[in-house]
C-alpha cells in the first residue's frame, strides 16, 4: 500500500507559504528541528516524547508513507530555494513542479490519515483499498494538470 509511484515531479517549483508547508512536514522531521531550537529541559522532553510516540504507534507501512512525504518536502524545498536563488523565470514550470510536490504531499497525507487505524471512525465509508484507489485517481488528475501546465 505504500506509495511506490515514481515521482515525475522533480522539476521545479516555488511555494508561497513555505513557512507553513514545511512546518507541516511529517512528524519525522519535526523532532530534530524542535530539539535544535530549544535547550531547555521541557523542550527536549517534548521532542523525545514525540519521537517515542511516533516510533511506538506507527506501523511499518505508514512509516514508508512518511518517508515519501519527507522526500516530497525535501524536493519541494529544493525547488523553492532554487526559485529564490536562481529566479523563477519559467514560472509555469516552477509552479507546476512545486504544485506537484505540494499536491502529492497532501494526497499522501490524506492517504496516511485515511489508513491510520485511529482515524477509522472518521471515515466510515473509506476502506484502505478505497483510500488507495482514491489516491491513485487524485494523483492521476494532479499529474495530468501539472504536465499540461508545465509548458
Amino acid at each position: 500500500m505504500a506509495p511506490k509511484k515514481a515521482q515525475a515531479s522533480s522539476a521545479a517549483a516555488p511555494v508561497v507559504t513555505t513557512g507553513t508547508t514545511t512546518s507541516t512536514a511529517p512528524a519525522v522531521s519535526a523532532p530534530s528541528k524542535k530539539s535544535s531550537s530549544s535547550s531547555s529541559e521541557a523542550w527536549s522532553n517534548v521532542a523525545t516524547n514525540i519521537l517515542k510516540h511516533y516510533q511506538k504507534t506507527t506501523p511499518q507501512r505508514t512509516k514508508l508513507i512518511d518517508l515519501f512525504m519527507a522526500f516530497l518536502v525535501v524536493v519541494g524545498g529544493l525547488q523553492f530555494v532554487y526559485c529564490v536563488v536562481a529566479g523563477n523565470y519559467p514560472f509555469n514550470a516552477f509552479l507546476s513542479g512545486f504544485s506537484a510536490t505540494v499536491g502529492q504531499f497532501v494526497l499522501t497525507a490524506s492517504l496516511r490519515i485515511q489508513t491510520t487505524e485511529a482515524n477509522k471512525a472518521d471515515f466510515p465509508s473509506v476502506s484502505p483499498e478505497r483510500a488507495f484507489a482514491d489516491y491513485v485517481f487524485g494523483s492521476l488528475i494532479l499529474h495530468f494538470f501539472c504536465v499540461n501546465f508545465i509548458n
Partner: peptide
C-alpha cells in the same frame, strides 16, 4: 481529518 482530506485535495487539484 475529513476536513483536512477534502479541503487539501480540493485546493491542490482545484488551483492547478
Amino acid at each position: 481529518t475529513r476536513l483536512y482530506v477534502s479541503y487539501t485535495t480540493w485546493y491542490a487539484l482545484g488551483t492547478l
